[in-house]
Design a protein around this nucleic acid. Structure first.
Lengths: 108, 108
DNA sequence: TGAACATATGAACAGACAATCATATGAAAG
DNA sequence: CTTTCATATGATTGTCTGTTCATATGTTCA
């Protein structure tokens, strides 16, 4: 199977979804349990529309799932993989922050 | 420490670097061992300048490291974490491709 | 049915970004 | 020192994307 390039493309698309602070914060918030759109917007101090748009993206990527409860819609992480990827990213960042290596990125 | 938001921001920045097919292909190619810019450009069938620009980004993010060998510059993965993150992304994508779930993303 | 609340969706604008072209820096050979 | 090869960098441009505003859909209650 020479689909390696397609797979790599899919991988980049997956990470692209993780590559936005709003979406990461949403996912991180959902780690503590399901939350409705209103509470998410409140928690992130952002407009309801912005949250809704990002939730749509996250849902399309299969990272979160939705469930209606009356008027509200509860969102939660769809898969254990999602939390795993989040954790690995956090581990990498924290590791780098602790062992302040000779990186060249912006460090005010 | 209430730096959680900053950390999450850093995480999103990290994933943003993984969220591009060119960079993912570079990282994937480097998994097989060090490669110079010319060979990377050849392998990905892309211009040298494009590769160089992306390598700069990858280097700034601490994902690859460079080493001169005469005229050429060998690039290699900087850290085991990089390969780990790549693998987890691949695992997620492959898992999803195998268990064709009820995702709603584009599936031609 | 109609008001009130919660969420989704569409259009539009601003900012970010990757590839390209041209060119500069760096290293080796003649 | 000059030429040649390998890489890096700067500027430009077309494209993608996240937020906002306005509005539509959906749900509950009176």
């Amino acid at each position: 199977m020479e689909h390696e390039i397609e797979v790599l493309y899919d991988v980049s698309e997956l990470f692209k979804v993780f590559g936005d602070s709003t979406r990461i914060r949403i996912l991180s918030a959902l780690r503590g349990g399901p939350l409705c759109v209103f509470h998410l917007a409140e928690r992130l101090a952002m407009g309801q529309s912005a949250i809704s748009h990002q939730l749509r993206l996250l849902r399309g990527a299969g990272l979160v799932k939705a469930k209606r409860n009356g008027k509200t819609v509860s969102y939660s992480l769809d898969d254990d993989h999602v939390a795993q990827i989040l954790d690995l990213g956090l581990a990498h960042v924290c590791h780098r922050n602790t062992h302040g290596s000779g990186g060249s990125d912006d460090e005010a």
